[in-house]
């Protein structure tokens, strides 16, 4: 579909043209730069986590990808076509949940879906009833389908919004904070749904402020702050970019700190009977040698191990700030 070459080969990318590709995408509202020179590449078949603090430009980016707002400069290509020009051809193949669900309170859940489906000129009216029923079933709303949407709880509204995105088989699903307002059980269901959609071949673009959630379901991740893209890559790459920490549980904490310091472990901290520290850079340190050194120094070790860096560590290292701080 694309004659031109991609800017850079994407490490770990699946084959085929990217589902989303932006170049120097910029949006200015008045004097404020909401999105600044964004180069985003979402590989086909990925579950792509889009992370960033509130106000970092995630939703503005999503709105540009969906053709709702026009970029100030730069380009956004979705499914191979430039937006917003390709809206008519691209969007029937895209399901979206943008900034929470929006429903007609005076219509039932089922009638809401029927209305959104009727707005899609490619949707077949003859299969509408069946497809609406299937979408309701998929998000577990069949029992409440006849209720007026204004009587729905936030979680039910969120599910109905998801159902609207699932009215047709989609190549790309854009889900902006899909688990907002859901209880833990509902969040688990959504995660399962995202995984099953991804296994059917749908690319999922998932924006969230819950790092935990991204880590659990996503294969790729991009981090935004203050309108700029800080990093993008596979979840594994990003997490390994933050160094892991060593944790030792021992009653002899003072002695353990001394020994570890000698072996180049930095940033040591003691909490009750737990000593943690940052492993030195480079592959030189063998964890088994560290443990042997502790034992040789008569440190009684109850537990010993390296804790894998979480996405949160990586995020804090990247942005240098707590997660929910507005950018």
């Amino acid at each position: 579909m694309e004659g031109r070459s991609r800017p850079e080969p994407w490490p770990g990318a699946t084959e085929g043209a990217p589902v989303v590709e932006t170049r120097a995408l910029t949006k200015r509202f008045g004097g404020q730069l909401a999105v600044d020179g964004l180069d985003l590449v979402v590989p086909r078949g990925s579950v792509f986590g889009f992370l960033g603090p509130n106000g970092s430009g995630k939703t503005t980016t999503i709105r540009m990808l969906m053709g709702l707002i026009e970029p100030t400069s730069g380009t956004a290509r979705v499914l191979g076509e430039e937006m917003p020009r390709g809206t008519r051809r691209v969007l029937p193949r895209v399901g979206a949940l943008i900034e929470g669900p929006a429903l007609y309170g005076f219509l039932s859940g089922r009638d809401n879906l029927t209305r959104f489906d009727a707005a899609d000129p490619t949707a077949d009216a003859r299969t509408r009833r069946a497809r609406v029923g299937h979408a309701l079933d998929r998000v577990g709303l069949t029992g409440a389908a006849g209720k007026k949407a204004r009587a729905y709880s936030l979680g039910m509204k969120q599910r109905l919004g998801l159902a609207a995105a699932l009215l047709q088989p989609r190549e790309l699903l854009v889900l902006d904070e899909p688990t907002n307002g859901l209880d833990p059980q509902g969040m688990r269901e959504i995660r399962t749904l995202v995984r099953s959609l991804a296994s059917e071949g749908t690319t999922v673009f998932l924006s969230s402020h819950l790092l935990d959630e991204i880590e659990q379901v996503c294969t790729h991740v991009a981090v935004m702050a203050r309108g700029r893209l800080l990093i993008q890559g596979t979840v594994g790459e990003l997490a390994s970019s933050a160094r892991g920490r060593l944790a030792v549980t021992t009653p002899d904490t003072a002695e353990a700190v001394r020994v570890l310091k000698e072996h180049g472990v930095n940033d040591l901290a003691v909490l009750d009977d737990r000593v943690t520290g940052e492993l030195p850079a480079g592959p030189a340190t063998e964890l088994a040698d560290l443990n042997a050194a502790l034992v040789r120094a008569d440190v009684r070790v109850r537990a010993f191990g390296a804790e894998r860096a979480s996405l949160e560590d990586a995020f804090v290292a990247l942005t240098g700030e707590g997660f929910d701080v507005a950018g």
Partner: peptide, 13 residues
């Protein structure tokens, strides 16, 4: 009410 954005991404045109 926000329903406009969902009509436009449907895409209603």
């Amino acid at each position: 009410s926000g329903t406009l954005r969902y009509l436009l991404v449907a895409p209603a045109g």
